[in-house]
Design a binder for these strands. Structure first.
Lengths: 147, 147
DNA sequence: TAAAATTAAATTGTGTACAACTTAATTATA
DNA sequence: TATAATTAAGTTGTACACAATTTAATTTTA
């Protein structure tokens, strides 16, 4: 077996599929004026409002170099606002505006629409999800059952 | 089930795992002075030398906006050189230099090293590869058995 | 065969990613 | 408790990724 052939790589299909998924999100997220990473930040805040940048970064595996401009964009769009944590002025606390919270309703059908555009039925969806979550745990990206 | 929870997304673990894999390639590729996308271009050329930019793009699912500067970087590093196809002057033909070809030897152990840093045994490696390749075909990224 | 359509690269602009560094606030420790 | 170490954001620089546009070469077609 030719280890250096593209067809024998594990990681190339990962890279290609991941980019393709992001591409298929694009038209679904466009009406919400969100990119995929911006959508991920909104998911975190819809789940728990008022979170520090650090915490968002931990959940999404993104650092401040990526998150600072991304959150600033969401603020300029009116979806988020920021404040400092009075207990620790280093921390930036990010929270939803009314508009940001309202956006959640519009986003509700996105997971379902995505499964549709990926052409996956429920069984396939959950099989892939389980496998990816297992690998995610194996790689140390997910350290507990709640994340 | 809360469809908008991060933990219930299929695509987030994909995104996170894909980024993590790229991160784990970094120290393996650093001695070769290659980034992961640059390594992919080298893989294509090690497999078949003298390929047009268009063809590289088709195999890697990348467009000229990404590939033009990337190939220029590899040229400035002395790994590649470019010429025009005399039969069709629109086409840029990319080929390996002696140095670029020599690099292949140094790269030979990378797939093995990667499986190691990912902590996957042979069975797991092939199981994930099969699943990813299936999904890749399902998404229309791979249209025949040779790619 | 001249004009229109298509194609391959290159270019421009926006938005991630992330390493490395800076700044300011907090915590640990001598 | 003053100093050192740590921490959270922000900044800078490099490198993708891709949409949209431009330019030049080739192919179609009227």
């Amino acid at each position: 077996m030719e280890a250096l052939h593209l067809s024998n790589q594990l990681c190339f299909p990962f890279y290609a599929v991941s980019k393709e998924i992001t591409k298929r999100y694009r038209p679904l997220l466009e009406p919400l004026h969100l990119t995929y990473p911006q959508y991920l930040v909104m998911l975190v805040l819809w789940e728990t409002d008022q979170v520090s940048l650090k915490t968002i970064g931990k959940r999404l595996h993104l650092d401040s170099g990526t998150l600072t401009p991304l959150v600033n964009k969401l603020i300029s769009q009116g979806y988020l606002e920021k404040a400092r944590n009075p207990q620790d002025e280093r921390q930036l606390v990010v929270q939803l505006t009314g508009e940001g919270r309202a956006l959640q309703k519009q986003a509700e059908s996105i997971p379902e629409q995505l499964a549709e555009v990926l052409g996956l039925n429920e069984n396939e969806y959950f099989a892939y999800q389980r496998m990816l979550t297992d690998l995610s745990i194996k790689l140390g990206l997910t350290d507990d059952a709640t994340c």
